[in-house]
């Protein structure tokens, strides 16, 4: 595999977010009133915000929240979707029916509105925001996994295992999961970008982390009062989101193309 530019950006973002805050000279929460809304300089490469806090440090720490949040949502939806998809594919017919109805109900209300309603019900916090996103995003996954598992179930070796009296759990974990693990990873990767956009959008609206903690979405929200004077405060975090989503999407596309070539499993 050739080294693509998106793998380099993903690597840089990963390093900046994990190691960056420890190595960088400024603390993301340290206020410096003399340096309010300072322009770009050697000391402050991305300038400072309205409290004189260093923007670069805030973006690096903010990325932790955004990326870890999006990763948790992706893992959660994959897990929940896979579980319900497996139950629908292998369980009795009535269970399949119930899960399908449930899917329709969750699809009937747009995800953002549903997440909004759920966070309001559970009281706004970052954890509840992530939970709400998991609960609103699983439908698409479960349908996808249901049809993938059904396809895998029709293979001869599964039929053989069944005849030997293996339990459903055994079949799913030992025989089906290894077969479909690469498409599952591709689907999760392809959706990571959309999840990151959702997390930052909801936290931009004000449903995420409370003020002093930076996160890419709420950094943009905080910059709204000043963005005409200091556009950089708004542009920089948004650019981070856009570049990350773009890179992850391209990575997902490439992974998909590779496994399509190898096994023709996922349809384009």
């Amino acid at each position: 595999m050739k080294l693509k530019w998106y793998s380099i950006t993903l690597f840089v973002i990963g390093v900046a977010v994990t190691l960056g805050p420890a190595l960088w000279q400024h603390d993301p929460l340290e206020q410096n009133i003399d340096q309010r809304l300072a322009p770009m300089s050697f000391n402050y490469p991305l300038g400072t915000d309205q409290f004189g806090r260093d923007m670069l440090a805030r973006i690096m720490v903010g990325g932790r929240w955004s990326l870890v949040g999006a990763a948790i949502v992706s893992l959660g939806t994959t897990g929940l979707g896979f579980m319900l998809g497996a139950m629908a594919a292998m369980g009795p017919k009535w269970l399949d029916h119930i899960i399908r109805r449930l899917t329709e109900v969750f699809q009937a209300v747009p995800g953002v509105l549903l997440a909004l309603a759920l966070t309001a019900l559970l009281r706004p916090s970052f954890a509840n925001l992530l939970l709400a996103l998991v609960l609103t995003n699983w439908t698409w996954y479960s349908r996808m996994y249901r049809s993938m598992i059904r396809q895998a179930l029709s293979a001869a070796h599964i039929e053989g295992t069944r005849a030997l009296g293996a339990s459903y759990l055994h079949i799913v974990t030992r025989h089906i999961l290894p077969n479909i693990v690469s498409p599952v990873i591709v689907i999760a990767t392809l959706n990571f970008g959309a999840v990151l956009l959702n997390v930052s959008a909801l936290s931009f609206i004000g449903l995420g982390l409370p003020p002093p903690t930076p996160e890419w979405g709420n950094l943009i929200n905080e910059s709204r009062n000043f963005f005409q004077r200091v556009p950089l405060l708004m542009i920089a975090p948004g650019l981070c989101i856009a570049i990350t989503v773009l890179s992850v999407n391209l990575l997902g596309n490439d992974l998909r193309d590779q496994i399509t070539k190898r096994q023709g499993f996922l349809q384009k």
Partner: peptide, 22 residues
């Protein structure tokens, strides 16, 4: 198409406001 699905819409909105309104 790939680009426009990667850009956060609220951010794009602010940028367009910055250019065309401000």
């Amino acid at each position: 198409a790939v680009f426009s699905t990667a850009v956060p819409n609220f951010w794009l909105a602010l940028i367009l406001i910055l250019i065309f309104a401000a």
